[in-house]
């Protein structure tokens, strides 16, 4: 009986079902903190903990059965990143108009994000592997995972830090926008996009459509620059 509830088909169905459900609810609730990736992952972790206690398997074994069932998504990760060309293509007029603010924001964003992680990481006495896992936290999931693998971080921890960074953007971004009087679309859009990727962008869209468009471009430009900086690590 338990075999049915740990079978690949069940796991695929469960993941698709939960993600669809949370995406649907996200559409109704309209709050960035209601993040489908976060909520689906937490639900499945709780489910796997229950399965673990019933079957008596080790954590690694339980997780392996799940990730093997969902193995097919790994084939899609590379084409997924390729698709990031679309949001910047449809916003090419924005790039033309705002190339200088985008360039400045991207460079400052990557430099501050990566150097602050590096300095704070040493300050808190983290090991190299942990610091490298946090370095790409400001860029979009697909690119962050690639960078983390390449420089010797732990992709799982990188993905978690990317999610937490996104939540920071949705939580604190609007307050910071007011405190520092960011009133222009370019400064709002770049701040959200370069610091907190897609989650921040969905918050920037609420402030203004143009800020959202600039923010979407910032996601990709920050991703590219972070990859380039990571070459030297």
């Amino acid at each position: 009986m338990i075999n049915i509830f740990t079978s690949p088909v069940f796991y695929i169905c469960l993941t698709l079902g939960l993600y669809s459900l949370f995406s649907f609810l996200r559409g109704i609730i309209k709050n960035q903190l209601f993040n489908p990736l976060l909520l689906t992952s937490i639900s499945i972790i709780l489910y796997l903990l229950v399965i673990k206690s019933i079957t008596g398997y080790a954590t690694k074994e339980t997780v392996d059965i799940y990730t093997n069932a969902l193995n097919f998504v790994n084939f899609m990760l590379s084409p997924l990143t390729v698709c990031l060309a679309l949001p910047i293509y449809t916003r090419r007029h924005i790039i033309k108009q705002y190339w200088l603010p985008i360039l400045v924001g991207t460079i400052i964003g990557c430099a501050v994000s990566m150097s602050s992680v590096f300095i704070l990481g040493h300050f808190f006495g983290l090991n190299k592997e942990m610091i490298y896992s946090l370095l790409p936290k400001s860029v979009t999931t697909a690119i962050a995972k690639e960078i983390s693998q390449d420089i010797g971080g732990i992709p799982e921890i990188t993905i978690a830090s990317v999610i937490v960074t996104g939540i920071c953007g949705a939580l604190f971004g609007p307050i910071l926008t007011k405190i520092f009087k960011l009133d222009r679309s370019a400064s709002i859009g770049m701040a959200f996009g370069a610091s907190s990727h897609a989650v921040g962008t969905s918050k920037a869209v609420e402030i203004s459509t143009r800020a959202g468009a600039i923010s979407s471009v910032a996601i990709v430009t920050s991703g590219i620059l972070t990859v380039i900086i990571a070459l030297f690590l």
Binding site: P101, G105, V112, F124, S161, C168, G169, T177
Partner: peptide
């Protein structure tokens, strides 16, 4: 044992990144 350190680093780094990008772009504009 270290999750709170990671969380703190992420939050501080987010603040610094958001503010420095926002202000530098504001100045550029």
């Amino acid at each position: 044992p270290i999750w709170w350190k990671l969380l703190l680093i992420i939050i501080i780094s987010f603040f610094l990144t958001f503010v420095s990008v926002g202000l530098s772009v504001k100045l550029t504009m």
